[in-house]
Design a protein around this nucleic acid. Sequence first.
RNA 1: GGGCAGAUGGCGGAGUGGACAAUCGCACCAGACUGUAAAUCUGGCGCCUUAACGGCUACGCAGGUUCGAAUCCUGCUCUGCCCA
Length: 389
Amino acid sequence: MFEVTTKDKNTRARTGRLHTTHGVVETPAYVIVGTHAKVRTLTPEDLVTTHTQMIIANTYHLWQALGEKGLGEYPGLHQSMGWSGSLMTDSGGFQVFSFGAAREGGAGKVGGSPRFEKENRENRVTISEEGVSFLDQKGEQHFLDAEKSVAIQERLGADLIVAFDECTSPVHSYEYTKESMERTHRWAERSLRARIRKDQLMLGVVQGGVFEDLRRESARAIGAMSFEGFAIGGAFGSSYGSEKGDTFRELDWTVPLLPENRHRHLLGIGKIDDIFEGVKRGIDTFDCVIPTREARHGALWTRRERIDLHKGRYQDDREVIDSECLCPVCGTMKLSKGELRALFKAENLEAGRFATMHNVFFFNDLMSKIRAAIKAGALEELEKEYRKN
RNA sequence: GGGCAGAUGGCGGAGUGGACAAUCGCACCAGACUGUAAAUCUGGCGCCUUAACGGCUACGCAGGUUCGAAUCCUGCUCUGCCCA
């Protein structure tokens, strides 16, 4: 159940409370990614000290890791992770893209170039009306469809689950995107029908790529279904990161067509600027690997800059990452950039953990400040503090 | 004093007559990362040139052999080990 608690006067931004079986998520909120039922490098205690409200795990990866037998005996994500807060699982729909079109198309879902140029790049996914067949590295096929995705998600036991969908690529044609979207709508209905448990919330996923009429059509279709909430997924393509005007136009097209009093999630986004853009367009929750992955890669987010600790200039830096930050690393340990850099250089695994703690705290703190700003009618001022240009 | 081994780009360390400005690793520089096949990947890394399959200078120093030498020869300098 979701309730809107405050509405911004100038934008579609709002604060809210998402009630799950494991508590209340104050929104707007950042959902921290823990694909394999673990937020990489962090302990369960770290999740608490970083003020994490909700974590998202992944259906496809856990299904593959656990197997049918493992799933049957699985104690549930909460117990497995030692996490008593709110959890969600993605449906596996993103893997339809990341193992499929992303590999052969050479595009990320937000445009751009292939990330691993040397790897073999054949599409390992076969999509049909029924579902999706994934070819693993041993050459075996694994079939996932709406019913199976929901069944797995019910076994995993997150508070919030996602209807099975196909995440399309920004380089997909209009014709393909339309065909895929319509199929995703059918999968959405199948996902709803496949539910057995009553204690989980389910999000339907709006697709439609970068095409306005498809996005609107998808928002209307998915928005009319009996989901507890809605997610916006797929390609943002050319709109993403553009300098002017059209940034997140997909949200302008879709959010107004979704039920006002239900939860809205933006799948797989984002960075600081994206968060503000999303919040202003009425998004309640976000999930993204940026805080955790970039932390492991040595990149630290602060209000003023993004610090790449691998740079030699931080070798003898005695300052903490961010003197204003109250995270365990900056506020309590007071670890300097030079010290943290040394840990990275020594390949000490604590480096990734400390960096992740900082970034996760940072994004959770950003959301907290956004909530306060919306309530105070000061969202614009807050945004200026975080966006220098 | 004698014997042996070795001196290569910021460091380590390949190369032992042409395809070497020189494998590779580290360090460094730049970039990427957005529902995680990612604690990862890409590019650069002698100097000049916007750049180059362009020019220049280079493999301890000085000569020599050769069409051609980081690679062979001679001497020198230095370093390590061994014997006196």
